[in-house]
Design a binder for these strands. Sequence first.
DNA 1: GCCAACGTTGGC
DNA 2: GCCAACGTTGGC
Length: 179
Amino acid sequence: MAKSSTVLIPPCNYWLFKSEPSAFSIQDLAHAKNSTYYWDGVRNYQARNYLRDTIKLGDRVLFYHSNADPIAIVGTAEVVKAGYPDHTAFDSTHRYFDPKSKSEVPTWYMVDIRLIQEFPQPITRDQLRETTATSTMQVLKRGMRLSIQPVTKAEWLAVHELAGVSDTLPSRPRLGSNV
DNA sequence: GCCAACGTTGGC
DNA sequence: GCCAACGTTGGC
């Protein structure tokens, strides 16, 4: 019976990352080298804890445009590098500089993500609200400002259904082969 | 532009 | 440790 507790396939976890497209959009990610970029500038402790402790290589990300037109989930990405210190906090000339964060004991962390796909149509808040399986998403809650939010597998799948796309990864080099 | 909801700061 | 003031987020 002990055998049944052995996890052969590591769980894949799902997240929603918010970004104002004027700061960093899904197009910016698409145009980055290897469609890969670091998710910097998170300066909230709960979101930091997710980045540092919880988000793992291979986790999936819903890319959300906030303060945008439209406000919507616009595509997906995968985590290709787990939490590591956010170097922008160390640079006194950078807009995300934080003198509290020291390289020996970093306060802030980031991950690298790679674009999986941009949806053919953005999925708006109205669509998310109107669909039972997505109507419970944290991002719809009033006053929910957290920029990194956990998403359930059911929500992840339902968003793909709304987008009319498969959640299967298109064929591409395997994780870690490009860094 | 408004403003509610939070998070942070700093005086006490 | 309390809490008022202030700054930020982010939908509307």
